[in-house]
């Protein structure tokens, strides 16, 4: 079948409609097959390329699966101590106010060990973007229970499911930071279907454009899968995420232009 196509010569450089951006290096990503990190990395780099700000952008990589983000993103990056990315980003942004700064953090980094840094950076209204990848589990260390693990969800440290009376409630950190006055834009997206990937890209673009206006923190949560930690195939994990993660973490904008979005709209946008 492939030979037929070569006959009509569609494979010409001028016919390319989609190609991986060069800002993402050609090295194979270290993530598991089907992991949402790769998609978010690519969307992030596409946004920086389209806005033509990649030479003026500094990223702060976390500790977690995406600790090696500086190896894949072909821009200036700093590695921060576990959970301290918002504190490092604060310093970078204050010293380079005309540069674009973002942190890229997972749920173990942002919502567990780095809760204090996250909340205070958001409350101070620092002008950078926080990209938060929430997969409800500590992926890199072997699928232990995280603050964002759902009630009843199995992980390697809660093999019978998260028991709320003994292990506590899951932390909706995104809703929490949306209450703070220093936060300007809060949204929750996903990257498991083409439509959601495109919405995530729009949200990332908006978050970076807000940095020009110095309005405050832009917080983009991406609900992602962890098929290795959840012990599923990537396609099963995406389905499980739709059925179990989205009812608890509904997709959509939570705070736009400094004003909380009514809950009704959030449900409609799902």
């Amino acid at each position: 079948m492939e030979e037929q196509f070569e006959k009509i010569e569609i494979r010409k450089p001028e016919n390319i409609v989609y190609k991986k951006t060069d800002l993402l290096v050609d090295r194979p990503l270290s993530y598991c097959p089907g992991c949402g990190h790769g998609t978010v990395h690519r969307m992030l780099m596409e946004v920086l390329e389209e806005m033509n700000i990649y030479e003026k952008t500094i990223g702060v990589s976390p500790v977690g699966c995406s600790v090696l983000a500086y190896d894949f993103l072909n821009i200036d990056m700093i590695g921060a101590a576990h959970g301290r990315a918002p504190a490092v980003a604060t310093a970078v942004k204050r010293l380079w106010p005309d540069h674009f700064v973002f942190t890229y953090q997972g749920d173990g980094d942002l919502a567990a060990i780095g809760t204090a840094e996250t909340i205070h950076a958001c409350n101070r209204g620092e002008n950078f973007t926080i990209i938060f990848i929430n997969n409800g589990i500590y992926g890199m260390t072997g699928g232990q229970m995280a603050p964002t693990t759902l009630p009843g969800m199995r992980s390697s440290t809660s093999p019978y499911g998260r028991d709320v009376p003994t292990m506590g409630h899951p932390l909706k950190i995104t809703e929490l930071v949306a209450q703070l006055p220093g936060v300007h834009f809060v949204t929750r997206q996903a990257v498991h279907t083409p439509g959601n990937v495109r919405k995530t890209k729009k949200a990332l673009r908006k978050a970076f454009e807000l940095q020009k206006e110095n309005k405050g923190v832009a917080f983009v949560e991406v609900v992602s899968n962890c098929n290795s930690g959840w012990k599923m195939t990537p396609v099963q994990a995406n389905k499980w995420m739709e059925e179990h993660m989205f009812p608890f973490y509904p997709l959509g904008d939570i705070k736009v232009d400094g004003k909380l979005v009514e809950k009704k709209e959030m449900v409609d946008k799902e």
């Binding site: 989609y18 790769g38 990937v197």
Partner: peptide, 24 residues
């Protein structure tokens, strides 16, 4: 097969960005 319309859906969701799409 050759049903492809170049909608770019596959390339957009690919976590590793391995797909290049052509359309004419």
């Amino acid at each position: 097969n050759d049903e492809c319309t170049g909608c770019t859906n596959c390339a957009v969701v690919c976590p590793d960005g391995v797909i290049t799409v052509y359309r004419a």
